[in-house]
C-alpha cells in the first residue's frame, strides 16, 4: 500500500541518524572496552574489565552506589511529605506551589551547585549564621555529606513531581470511603494512600537514583579527594589520562547497571502509572 509506505518512509532519516549517533557510538564504546593498545594497535583483551574489579575501583563503584542510595532515600523522606502536603486539599493554589518547586530547575545546574560553595564554606553563609546563633560550625564542604546534599538539592524535584502527580490523581472518594469505614488519618495513610502512591514513589526513585549514580559534577564541585564517583573516574580516563579503553569499560559497567535498574523499575511499575517526567 502506497499510503503506509509513504508514512513509513518518513522514519528513514531517523533510522540512519540513530544508527550513526546512538548505535555505532555504543558499539565503539564496547569495542574500546574490549581492547588494549599494544604497539599502536588495538588488540582484544579482557584486561579493562579485570582492572575495573580491582579494590580501588570497587571502592569507587560502591561509593557511587552508596551516595546515590542515601540521596535517593533522603529525597524520598523529604520529598514525599512535600508532595503529600501539596496534593492535600488544604491549599488553594496547589499548581503555584508545585511551580515553586520546579522553577529552580530553570537556573543553570552547575551554577546552582556552585552556589552551595558560598553557603557551605568554612566562613560561608551557613557557618556565619550558625556561629551567629551560637552553634558550632559545620565542616561540610569537600566531604561526602556535601555531595549527598548537592544530589538531594538537585534531584529533589524529580522525587516530588511524580509522587505529587499520583497523589493528586487519587480519587478523593477513596479516602472518604476509608474514613467512612472507620479509618483514622493514620490508617488512611498507611493502608490506602501510601500503597496507592507506590507507582509515583518508584518513578521518583528511578528519576533520582539514575542521575545521582552517574553524576560527576556534584562530586567534582562539592566533594573532596575521597568523593570520587564512577562519573569522575570515567571523566578522568577520557579527559585527563586518556585511557579510553579503561574509560569505556567503566562506561559499559555504568550503563549496564543503569539499564538493569531501569528495567527492574519499569517492571515493578508495569502499568506505567508513575507519572514520570518522560
Amino acid at each position: 500500500m502506497l499510503k503506509g509506505s509513504a508514512k513509513r518512509a518518513a522514519v528513514a532519516p531517523y533510522v540512519i541518524w540513530s544508527a550513526l549517533f546512538v548505535i555505532i557510538p555504543i558499539l565503539l564504546v564496547i569495542y574500546y572496552s574490549l581492547t588494549m593498545e599494544t604497539d599502536g594497535k588495538l588488540v582484544f583483551s579482557w584486561a579493562n574489565y579485570a582492572r575495573a574489579f580491582q579494590p580501588t575501583y570497587i571502592d569507587v563503584m560502591l561509593r557511587s552506589g552508596r551516595l546515590a542510595l542515601i540521596s535517593t532515600a533522603a529525597c524520598l523522606l523529604i520529598g514525599y511529605p512535600v508532595a503529600y502536603i501539596m496534593a492535600s486539599r488544604e491549599f488553594e493554589n496547589r499548581s503555584f506551589l508545585l511551580f515553586l518547586f520546579l522553577v529552580p530547575m530553570w537556573m543553570n545546574f552547575l551554577l546552582r551547585t556552585y552556589s552551595w560553595l558560598a553557603l557551605l564554606e568554612n566562613n560561608g553563609i551557613l557557618n556565619t549564621f550558625l556561629s551567629g546563633i551560637g552553634l558550632p560550625k559545620l565542616a561540610l564542604l569537600y566531604t561526602n555529606k556535601a555531595v549527598v546534599l548537592g544530589m538531594v538539592y538537585n534531584f529533589l524535584p524529580f522525587m516530588i513531581l511524580p509522587i505529587y502527580t499520583v497523589l493528586k490523581k487519587m480519587d478523593h472518594s477513596l479516602i472518604e470511603a476509608a474514613q467512612d469505614l472507620g479509618a483514622d488519618s493514620r490508617n488512611v495513610f498507611f493502608r490506602l494512600v501510601l500503597p496507592l502512591s507506590t507507582p509515583g514513589v518508584i518513578s521518583g526513585i528511578t528519576m533520582v537514583f539514575m542521575p545521582a549514580v552517574t553524576t560527576f559534577i556534584i562530586s567534582d564541585l562539592l566533594g573532596g579527594s575521597k568523593s570520587m564517583l564512577i562519573g569522575n573516574l570515567i571523566e578522568q580516563q577520557f579527559m585527563k589520562v586518556s585511557d579510553w579503553n579503561f574509560g569505556s569499560a567503566m562506561s559499559m559497567i555504568l550503563m549496564g547497571v543503569v539499564l538493569v535498574l531501569f528495567t527492574v523499575f519499569t517492571m515493578v511499575d508495569k502499568d506505567g502509572e508513575g507519572g514520570a517526567l518522560y
Binding site: P25, I26, L28, V29, P211, S248, S251, M255, L259
Partner: peptide, 11 residues
C-alpha cells in the same frame, strides 16, 4: 535512559 556521561563519551 542512558547516562549522560556514557552518551557523551560514546559520541
Amino acid at each position: 535512559v542512558n547516562p549522560d556521561i556514557v552518551m557523551g563519551v560514546s559520541l
